[in-house]
């Protein structure tokens, strides 16, 4: 079980969190202007890297805040967390 450093509460057990998938997939500014293919990319396509991945977590059984984490999908090591709206830090 991961120990996830919530940027608001500090390190907490993974069981307190919900996973939210890839970070920085913004809802399109004007969905009506997108082609079917572009819209399908927003809906259905996500990265699946082996290595550092920026992803969303929600501290759902804690402060209920959404935040972003940089997690290495190969080692499960979390390189950093940052709040919504903050820029993605450089992975250490």
């Amino acid at each position: 079980m991961l120990l996830i450093p919530c940027p608001w509460c500090g390190p907490r057990e993974e069981a307190e969190f919900h996973y939210g998938g890839q970070a920085h997939v913004a809802y399109p500014e004007d969905p009506a202007a997108l082609s079917d293919e572009e819209w399908a990319r927003y809906l259905f396509f996500r990265d699946n890297p082996k290595g550092v991945f920026a992803e969303r977590w929600s501290h759902s059984a804690g402060c209920r805040r959404w935040f972003n984490a940089l997690r290495d999908t190969a080692t499960n090591r979390i390189h950093g967390v940052y709040r919504v709206g903050e820029p993605r830090p450089v992975a250490s």
Partner: peptide, 13 residues
Amino acid sequence: LDWMEEWLQTEWP
């Protein structure tokens, strides 16, 4: 409630 919070916090803060 989770769904509403997600959109409010991550898309329309």
